[in-house]
Computed example of a mutant assay.
Amino acid sequence: MMFKILIIEDEKPLLDKMVNNINWQKHGYQIFQAVNGLEALSILQDEDIDILVTDIQMPGLNGIELVNKLREDYRDIKVLIISGHAEFEYAQQLIRLGVNEYLLKPFRSQRLLEAVNEIRDGISRENKDKEELASLRNELSVYLNKNVRNDTLNWLTDDKFFENQSIIINNNQLYQLIKSGSEEELLKEVDHILKHIGGLKGDRQGLFILLNNLVLFTFQALKELGYDYQDMIKKIDNVYLEKVINGDNLLDLEKWLKDFFLDVNSMVTCPKNNQNEILIEEVKEHIKKNYQEGITLTELSQHFNVSSGYLSKLFLDYVGENFTDYLNMIRVNKAKELLKTTDKKIYQIADEIGFNDSFYFSSWFKRLVGVTPTTYRDNLEFL
């Protein structure tokens, strides 16, 4: 995938240097250039630009005005500011507006490339996060339809409440704080987010968008860390939230958010071993009830909302054998019972206990029992 960069600089020699001193195509970039903000806007109307590299002081439309307009019309574009020493305070102001990076003049071409690469890597991480969040929303929608009245928590899965709030919510920082289990630091980050709530007073949809992003990302973080985020759904009192938001009672909303994240912190700081043991026992019980189905590790991990790698490691740690060995041991034990109590053919037993291939079943049976199913049945009187 080629990333599109628009470089804006009114000093032509510097613009030529930035465009020509780096083999942009080799590094996966397509370059567009403009000498002022107005020319840049024309290009932005025709091209899906990923990264904007812009000077601050420009004729017609300066860097600050351009970034403000970008935030209104092209909010997904990442911005790198290039600034002279005298303009440093402007650059700081732009960073507060959501600019991703800045460079002070003069700078080497290699430093420009490094800064752009950092932004590109951030875009890739964001795209991965979006894919994971989309998957989580689908998973959550299925869960809510099965367990909760359909319209009760629709703000968690409704597209109109799902918007990028990365300027307000630092997802990576929030993830690290949830992972750390530090209640004090987590509440500091929540306080930072709450500062933006005052500006949403009277904006019902804006408040639900903020809640949607906060709650969904928290669920995603819990899932990645191996916790059951569905336990947190039970703590969301939607009737209360509707009442608070419709009544513009922001103090109560702030209290709810703090209580929510205190519950999250309690989940993370709860002894993990106990949770893991409970999870493994639930998984084993699920296998015993459904061994005859085509169970896979991937399906199990989706059912219990953990990653397949995490579940595989837990199985080995707590059961002492891998998932496949355990599943087939359950199946073979059932096969031994059927061989003793019925006259069903080998292929019928194989199909009944979840093996689609009788030869595959026989090989597993011999591996675990020491003889083939036929030999086992023929020698039952000696067992």
Rank of each mutant, 00 (worst) to 15 (best):
Q348G: 10
A40E: 02
I278H: 07
W155M: 01
G28E: 05
T269Q: 00
I119T: 03
I119R: 03
M58D: 04
S358D: 11
L38V: 13
Q230R: 15
D73T: 13
L251V: 09
D231Q: 11
I353G: 02
L70C: 06
N246H: 10
P373T: 05
I64L: 10
L253W: 00
D76Y: 10
E132K: 12
F162M: 13
L14H: 09
V371T: 11
A91M: 07
R377M: 04
Q230T: 13
K78W: 05
Y318C: 09
S308I: 02
I77M: 06
D55Y: 02
V264K: 00
K160I: 15
F107E: 10
L156E: 04
E254V: 01
T157H: 05
F107G: 10
T375V: 09
V19Q: 07
L177K: 00
L279D: 04
K128M: 13
Q173N: 15
E299G: 14
G370T: 05
H27C: 12
K288C: 08
L66D: 00
G28I: 05
I349S: 00
D151H: 09
N273F: 10
S301F: 06
L61W: 08
E9D: 08
I168C: 07
N322P: 07
V283H: 02
V244N: 00
L380M: 08
L113C: 02
E101V: 08
E224Q: 14
L214I: 01
I167D: 14
E183N: 12
R367P: 11
L257Q: 03
N246F: 02
N305W: 04
E299A: 12
V142A: 12
N246A: 10
D237S: 03
P106E: 08
Y240Q: 11
Q93S: 15
L44K: 00
I81Q: 04
F161H: 04
K258N: 03
I245C: 03
M232Q: 12
A134T: 15
R75D: 12
K188C: 07
K78E: 12
E131Q: 14
Y291M: 03
I278S: 11
L61D: 08
I330G: 07
E352P: 08
L15K: 04
L66R: 02
L112S: 06
T341A: 05
F323E: 04
N328G: 01
K336V: 08
K105F: 05
H286S: 02
S182P: 00
I287D: 01
E285P: 07
D73R: 10
G294M: 02
D151I: 06
T54P: 01
I349H: 01
T375P: 06
S109C: 09
